[in-house]
Design a protein around this nucleic acid. Sequence first.
DNA 1: GGGCTGACAGATTTTGCAATCTGTCAGCCG
DNA 2: CGGCTGACAGATTGCAAAATCTGTCAGCCC
Lengths: 197, 197
Amino acid sequence: MVPMADTTLTPERILEAAEEVLRRFGPGKATVVDVARVLGVSHGSVYRHFASKTALREAVADRWLDRVHADLPAVTAGTAPAAERLRSWLHTLHGTKRATALDDPELFATYVALVAEASTVIAASLDGLVAQLARIIADGVESGEFAVDDVPRSARAVFYATVRFHDPTHSAQWADPDIEQQLDAVCDLLLDGLRPR
Amino acid sequence: MVPMADTTLTPERILEAAEEVLRRFGPGKATVVDVARVLGVSHGSVYRHFASKTALREAVADRWLDRVHADLPAVTAGTAPAAERLRSWLHTLHGTKRATALDDPELFATYVALVAEASTVIAASLDGLVAQLARIIADGVESGEFAVDDVPRSARAVFYATVRFHDPTHSAQWADPDIEQQLDAVCDLLLDGLRPR
DNA sequence: GGGCTGACAGATTTTGCAATCTGTCAGCCG
DNA sequence: CGGCTGACAGATTGCAAAATCTGTCAGCCC
């Protein structure tokens, strides 16, 4: 068991090792001993940087969510009409998740399990997403494209109405070749609902 | 092991016994030997009426779905304006499910597990529900309340957009005291989307 | 001295065997 | 006869011992 410590031990390096172990063994069999072995250190050292196995897993979940949602802020901050941006935002969110899910279903399931454990992380992340929706809708109201009484309420409604297309519990349906048309149909309905009459 | 066969053995009686066993032991521990014991017959007899344990469980799932959806056709066939009927239909579906889920979460979980196994049954049931939505929307189009190009497409969109409120995978959220307001917010958006402009 | 190790207690998970269950069918019984 | 029984083979599940894992900490080593 010769160590291969070519760098100092950092949270960053531990997270990378943890991801590798999760990729290889899945969430059920990944242990912190495995993580330590990949790093060539004793498992006690890992506990110097993460208070518990749970904390480590939460950090991995957080990291993954950041990566999966990385493309969205650019859409939110775009210059296109609000309706277009809203549709594009929803398709981006759906598209990234679907691609991840279909590309490597097992790895996707691993990350989903991780995120499901980390209820704090997930709540914060969802609030951030709804805030982006609210910003797009607010822009639309300002430009006269949309007319809504209560922007946050509508943002939440849009988020909830598209649960089928971004919530991992529905990922089995994302293999349906018709799924994008379904999302479009829901978008049509929602956008018509947001427009002034 | 004295028999208590007070009637002839019918599929009906077997289904009732199966439900009792499922209620008491849950989906993981209910066996067809248990069912036979409740009926005071040998387990071989059960196989005279149901081809397999799976078939028996499917029949139970089917029965349960029928019961849970029993109130909907009356709403569909009602005389109120289509918009009202649509909202009421969605609230009825959500309300029945939520009541069942909150009243006895364990029994609810049992039935959900059963239905999840029975993919054929579930697909047929969902098609029936979407058909009811389509009928309400078609009525609305005829009366001028709604304006949509493609009624079946919109019906599916409405169904998908309200997944959060009727799909059992989301039942954990139904305890939220705000859940009905959330459904109302989504309904507002959808109904505005269906109306002519 | 500060990061790291490795042994340890208690909790959790694997393992392999025993018990139970599913589905079948030859024959019994009314 | 026609529905029912009970024994049976193969598959599945439960259980208890053995192995592994988590989290801690006294002490080592650079």
